[in-house]
Design a protein around this nucleic acid. Structure first.
Lengths: 202, 202
DNA sequence: AACCCAAAGTAGACGGTGACTACTTACTAG
DNA sequence: CTAGTAAGTAGTCACCGTCTACTTTGGGTT
């Protein structure tokens, strides 16, 4: 790391890292390309080599967010009989729901970026990343109890209902309309209702 | 309305009207105090007499949004036996849910403002307006069928679950993760499940 | 009627920002 | 060795939010 006259290679990632920190601290409005350049010790025009736009920087943050959230949900969502706290399908869904809301609490501003209302047409990479997250939901649902098969129609319903429940709770918590604790209880309640509705036998 | 050298009285409302239009057209980022002043035919410093901040203008928009949404939901939420399309409790809840999502579709950017992730402490007026909306939910629930009384605990649960469902759907639709039609079907499904869970007899 | 005073609007300035352009440096493939 | 390209620099421009000092307006007070 000796005296690099020109930055060498990882500026894009460094900018995104700083941006993530600023985002957590001051929200999306606090994210300025010039400030990020300053933090990276680079001229104010340098970010333009990696992001044509300020919006494209924010989009890249959103993509990262979707990926990070997806990884976290997959970590937590496996139906593992040996896992402490229950290896049932419902337990796995509960863990995913809880992790989703936790993510929204910790990174409320990032979450807002990921689910921002698009006036003009959205960035393609963001859309792909979002679809990837929904695909992760579907993977999770494929772990349901094989003795109670789910029709394709019902799996789709469950996926959407689950997404609405966790996203709604995330939105309410992120905007401080309810507390983080209330959010945790709420999403647990909602998930329980969903599981009992689709798997009455449990 | 003849030749008013100084604007006379309704500038605040006019600014908010223009702001609402710009918000719908270009999103919150497109709302500029100077631009609004220009549209109102007023000097660039004039808005400062009514809004100390750009943020305070946006907060006022959010308050207006909560009020408008509340009015709409009350219009639609009465359990009226004579109403076409069903005077049952479930029908009323369905209409409210549908109106909520419709609002989010039509005014996605405004909705985003209303449920923005607050980094610093929120505006007091916005919080009051938001609480007013939740109070409207509670009013609606008080119309439930008297032959199946609801405990205070369950009413609270229902209110939060309903809020999460409609807000989650609104968020998914507003961010174009699902289409408006999918959102309408989704929120209907969710509401149906909620009603059947809390009023199994229906 | 004269005065005062607060509210509302004007005008100018300052620093910060996103975006654009022309230029330079470093690296790499042929 | 060299040509070409990706990455970074530096300067400029228009716009914006905010601050300050000043002016206009109109309603009460005495």
């Amino acid at each position: 790391m000796v005296e690099r006259p020109f930055h060498h290679g990882n500026l894009r990632a460094e900018l995104l890292d700083h941006a993530e920190a600023v985002l957590r601290e001051d929200g999306a409005d606090g994210v300025s390309l010039r400030d990020l350049a300053r933090r990276a010790g680079v001229s104010h025009g340098a970010p333009r080599s990696h992001f044509v736009d300020r919006q494209s920087l924010l989009d890249a943050l959103a993509v990262r967010g979707f990926e990070r959230l997806g990884v976290r949900l997959r970590e937590v969502g496996a139906v593992d009989p040996d896992r402490a706290g229950g290896g049932t399908f419902e337990a796995a869904v509960q863990r995913v729901a809880r992790a989703y809301v936790d993510f929204a609490v910790r990174d409320a501003a990032l979450m807002e970026l990921m689910f921002a209302a698009k006036t003009d047409h959205a960035d393609e990479a963001v859309e792909r990343a979002a679809e990837g997250l929904f695909a992760t939901f579907d993977e999770l649902l494929d772990q349901h109890r094989p003795d109670q098969p789910m029709s394709a129609h019902d799996r789709r319903r469950f996926g959407l209902l689950f997404a609405a429940a966790v996203q709604g709770t995330a939105s309410l918590v992120g905007s401080r309309r309810i507390s983080a604790d209330q959010g945790a209880a709420l999403v647990e309640d909602a998930t329980g209702i969903l599981v009992r509705t689709f798997f009455p036998g449990s």
